[in-house]
């Protein structure tokens, strides 16, 4: 029992990373009907920027704040330059464009910083609490709190601010929104920028445990895809729940099911995606779309 509870806690910790990246994917999908396969690589690049700034002597949190702003600009710029011109293209063209971004950003990180694993500073203290034989680290708790805070902020922004409302409108009704004075393209650009910030946060949370390398987010994006599919591609809240579920399923599955084991841990997101697509294709929190004939 203790083992299971312990794994549950570990799962929640990695689940926060998947959830944050899944939120980024879902935000982009909601706004532009695109799955940005390059999100993880863009985020890794920005974490490298933050790391570089700490090496230059900036305090960690200042470096992170600057890098978050830079990732917003990067996300917006990628949308303006590479995606917006082909927004109405068939999906396979956009997929290829995202693959290009994926390869490009990975190569850029490799070019500038090399392929060695770099130690990224921990964000939270090393304290470990023991509650009923279950060890909970301040790091895990910190990650969960960070995710909860950010999710709350995001939800509040979408719910209560004018700009949040405009962004939702632009995502839902791209053709009609201009009639009420919403600049759709600006809103979509904002959406891509915000998503990039969420991706960056996912990568920052992942970096201390995974070590910083150009391919750090390669497997994380697979789990995030599973999380977004599980939660539903139009629901940020679903993405968070999905991320946590995927994280817990991963740790529990690899410890409890011998046939999967540590080697086949990638099988778990695959099984989850398959299951959800056949049971409830729109995801747990997704609304099934109705198509006009």
């Amino acid at each position: 029992m203790t083992l299971i509870l312990q794994q549950l806690v570990e799962g929640l910790a990695s689940g926060t990373i998947y959830a944050a990246l899944a939120v980024a994917l879902v935000m982009i999908h909601r706004a532009t009907r695109i799955v940005n396969f390059a999100q993880g690589e863009m985020a890794t690049f920005c974490v490298y920027l933050a790391w570089q700034m700490t090496v230059w002597g900036l305090p960690l949190y200042v470096a992170l704040a600057i890098a978050a702003v830079l990732s917003f600009i990067l996300g917006a710029a990628v949308f303006r330059l590479a995606i917006r011109p082909i927004l109405s293209a068939p999906p396979e063209a956009i997929v290829v464009s995202c693959i290009g971004l994926f390869i490009g950003f990975q190569a850029m990180s490799l070019w500038l910083w090399g392929s060695d694993n770099l130690q990224f500073p921990r964000l939270f203290s090393n304290t470990i609490w023991t509650i009923a034989d279950v060890r909970i680290s301040a790091n895990t708790a910190g990650m969960l709190v960070t995710l909860a805070l950010l999710a709350g902020l995001l939800a509040a922004m979408f719910r209560f601010t004018r700009i949040g409302l405009a962004m939702r409108a632009a995502a839902a009704e791209r053709e009609k929104s201009p009639y009420v004075g919403i600049e759709v393209e600006t809103m979509l650009t904002l959406g891509w920028g915000l998503a990039a910030v969420f991706g960056f946060i996912a990568a920052v949370l992942a970096a201390p445990s995974l070590f910083l390398s150009p391919t750090m987010m390669l497997s994380v994006i697979i789990y995030a895809l599973a999380a977004a599919t599980l939660g539903g591609w139009d629901s940020p809240a679903g993405a968070i729940v999905g991320g946590l579920v995927v994280g817990v399923a991963e740790t529990l599955g690899t410890t409890l099911v011998k046939a999967i084991g540590a080697e086949l841990r990638l099988a778990i997101p695959f099984l989850l995606i398959t299951l959800i697509l056949f049971v409830r294709p729109q995801g747990l929190f997704g609304r099934s779309g109705t198509t006009r004939v």
Binding site: A82, P85, I86, A89, A93, I94, V96, S97, I99, G100, L101, F102, I103, G104, F105, Q106, A107, M108, L110, W111
Partner: peptide, 16 residues
């Protein structure tokens, strides 16, 4: 290292 950059860039530009 530039190989990936050129490759990825080509894909993006091709789609444009």
């Amino acid at each position: 290292a530039m190989a990936g950059l050129i490759y990825g860039g080509t894909l993006v530009v091709m789609m444009l």
